[in-house]
Design a binder for these strands. Structure first.
Lengths: 204, 204, 204, 204
DNA sequence: CATGAATGAGCCTTCATTCAT
DNA sequence: AATGAATGAAGGCTCATTCAT
């Protein structure tokens, strides 16, 4: 349990105050990452920005990386939620329309806090991101895979692989574009690539 | 010149011994990054692995980030070289064939030292990668852009944007796949996405 | 605030323990300077002698120079206090008597920890000694200047200059004498020079 | 002989080139001290500024401190020479005139490279300044002592002590004044103090 | 539970000195 | 003799983590 729980929150705070503190810490981490990058991300700074003491921080998180994991989980959850909403909305729509909608969701997510998103993308792999924390990320891919598998107009050998590929290519393309501030019609560009990948290019 | 040269090598070694040391340091950095990630990447470890002393390391590089920059440059150069070779070979080939060839080059490059490639992709943006060091990366995109612009069967509004997008989506897709050890027909997958992006999907 | 506060204490400790630590560090610095000179003055040694850890040291001082500054300030304050006491005692005394008393104070101060005093005299100028830290030194000169300006038996064009000159000549003379262990009637020698400087030589 | 010669030049270079190099090194040290203080004074910088290699530097000086010692000696010699010239010129003059002339020499010396002079004053005591190197400094005091002893209008108990005291008070006063850029009638101020010290104040 | 002072391993970097060429 | 690359001890400083209050 020592190493396994390295990334899990130390305790699920039941009391209101506790939860609020934990959330403040995670949000403080997000702020700092967005504003100063990994270099400025240290437990003292996070605690200070969260209006808590280091001691409290360690009450809720077993260590620095666990905060990152919680933050990654939070972001993944948010993305998953946004994707879910869209997926159910476009379940019956034509494929290109559905993909366009999802691309827009992805672009919106990565755009809202671009630096944060990019950093988390990078860290997600570095930390093994213990199974539990990775669940959220996995969840997104699973949902997308199910969507793809359910489309009668697609005949994918491995929907899980496709889902993961699409997520990664979209992330790569979007992060790169945001870095270069080349955001015009970004969703459209992602859509073209995705449809092409799925063997259903729009231009046909 | 103080902050500007933060990433440039400190002195270009003239003597054979010096050049060998500088190269050994860069290669040692690559080894360590591949084997232990950024966590194990510190000047003492790099120097030790290179069979040199810290003092020597600082003779050739103004700091640890400069080593990273040199390594990134080296890898970018290698990729650019491989791409160049392929580009000239497939200049006249049908588009899908040309793209397939380039995808294969990209997959090969990222696969040879997957962890290293991924780490460098992440760091490349973190360091501003001073103009000079970024030249190599830029170079790759420029070459690809020229290739795309020259294709009569493509009519791209902005070849530079397209080139950058293709590079980034390919990196995203490939890195993600390698992380999951899902490498089967990787080049094919990349090709489909690329052709789709270019509005020339293979399946038409 | 970054460079400006290079010499100011980092945090004013509120708790008793904290203040004690900060003071122990300053006193440790004094001990080391007296015993081993600037060569032995390093953060590890100071912290060790203070019975604290480097970490604590850096909690209270932003760097080693700040410790020097704090020490210089402490010594200047002590000297100023001693001078103050004497000044009020001899305010109405004949000039030569007053100067003799002050010379005795200066000799006593520099003699109590001669090496320390000499080192601080040397360092005081090297560090710019930020305005705040310099205040104490300035204070001494100001007090003396006021005293000189108030003497009816003196007619000085620039009492501030005279005060600074007297302080410096006394320091030079005393430090030099202590170095040579030539301390007999030191206060008398200083007094003669001072009275001469003031144009009121005793021998007239 | 190991520790004893720590401060002596390693070899008295007989060949012209050797002497030139040694002198260049000493002058480079002076330049650096004047321009950047002790912080910038390191063997690599000195060698570079002297147009020599570190290796050559170590050919002529056993270590870093020896360069300082040589420089101190050079400056002391120059001062002694200037003082000698003046002493012989004013041997028969009235005391206040003679002292005034010497004060002017001291002011001129300390003013020509004020930072250098102050630094050397500080270092002179720190290094033990091996007997030989100290000889020059001693020499100045001896000359002055002889002059004082020879004056029929003075009756000093200990001319050596008086000479040393005068030199030190003058240095303290002058260095302090130059630091504050308060140089007007500096020689006059020194003279008043000196005459007062000698019990022969000008104002009588 | 909260606080924040204390700890100290760890890492970066400099520079005096040596020595192979 | 000269050169300058190499060495590595030494020291400055940070920050994750612990623990007394």
């Amino acid at each position: 349990m020592d190493d396994a729980n390295r990334l899990s929150p130390r305790k699920t705070p039941v009391q209101r105050r506790g939860r609020a503190t934990a959330e403040a810490i995670v949000e403080a981490a997000a702020h700092i990452l967005e504003a100063e990058g990994l270099a400025g991300f240290n437990t003292n700074a996070v605690a200070a920005r969260a209006g808590a003491s280091v001691g409290s921080l360690y009450q809720y998180f077993p260590g620095k990386e666990a905060i990152l994991a919680a933050l990654a989980r939070r972001e993944a959850d948010r993305f998953a939620a946004a994707l879910d909403a869209t997926l159910s909305r476009v379940a019956a729509a034509p494929l290109d329309e559905a993909i366009t909608a999802m691309a827009a969701v992805a672009v919106a997510h990565q755009s809202s806090r671009p630096r944060l998103a990019r950093l988390l993308d990078g860290e997600e792999q570095r930390l093994g991101l213990g199974d539990e924390a990775q669940a959220a990320t996995r969840g997104t891919a699973d949902r997308l895979a199910r969507f793809l598998a359910g489309r009668p107009d697609l005949d994918l050998a491995d929907p899980n692989e496709a889902a993961a590929d699409l997520l990664h290519l979209a992330r790569g393309l979007i992060d790169g574009a945001l870095e270069r501030s080349a955001a015009s019609d970004l969703a459209g560009r992602v859509t073209r690539a995705a449809l092409g990948y799925l063997g259903a290019a729009s231009g046909c």
